[in-house]
Simulated scan of single mutants.
Amino acid sequence: MQLQFPLQFEKVNSKKVSDFILEQLEEAIILKELLSEEQLPTERELATIFNASRLAVREALGQLEANGLIEKRVGAKGGTFVLPVTMNSHRRTKKEIEREWDKMLKVFEFRMLIEPEAAFLAAGRITPEELEQLQELLDMSRAEDCPRELFRALDVKFHLNIAKSSNNLYFEKAVRQIRTQINPALDLMPYNHEIRSVNCENHSLLLEAIQARDAGLSKEIMRQHIAKSAEAIYTRVFDGGERG
Rank of each mutant, 00 (worst) to 15 (best):
A212H: 05
R196F: 03
V57E: 03
A60T: 02
N67C: 06
K32D: 02
I233P: 03
R213H: 15
L207N: 06
K77M: 11
E45T: 12
G75R: 10
I226K: 01
F9N: 13
F238T: 10
K228F: 09
K106F: 03
Q24G: 10
E130D: 14
E144H: 00
M1W: 06
F81L: 03
Q177D: 12
V156N: 05
E109M: 12
G244S: 06
L55Q: 12
T80M: 07
Q133T: 11
P147D: 08
N13Y: 09
P41G: 04
G79L: 06
E231S: 12
L188S: 05
E98A: 14
L217Q: 10
Y191H: 13
F120A: 02
M140E: 11
E23D: 15
V57M: 05
E115V: 10
L69R: 07
L7G: 06
L169N: 09
L205K: 12
L206W: 04
T127R: 09
I195N: 07
P84C: 06
L35V: 10
E33A: 14
R152L: 14
I221Q: 01
F20H: 14
R236P: 00
V156I: 11
L46E: 00
D139A: 12
H225E: 12
D139W: 00
F108R: 05
Q181A: 15
E136R: 13
R223A: 15
E96Y: 11
L121M: 07
Q211P: 04
F110Q: 07
G124P: 01
G68D: 01
G240H: 08
D187L: 06
D145M: 00
G79H: 05
L3A: 13
L188Q: 11
Q63N: 06
V198W: 04
V17A: 15
E65L: 07
P84T: 07
R111G: 03
D214S: 11
E27Y: 05
N183D: 11
G124L: 02
D19I: 08
R54Q: 15
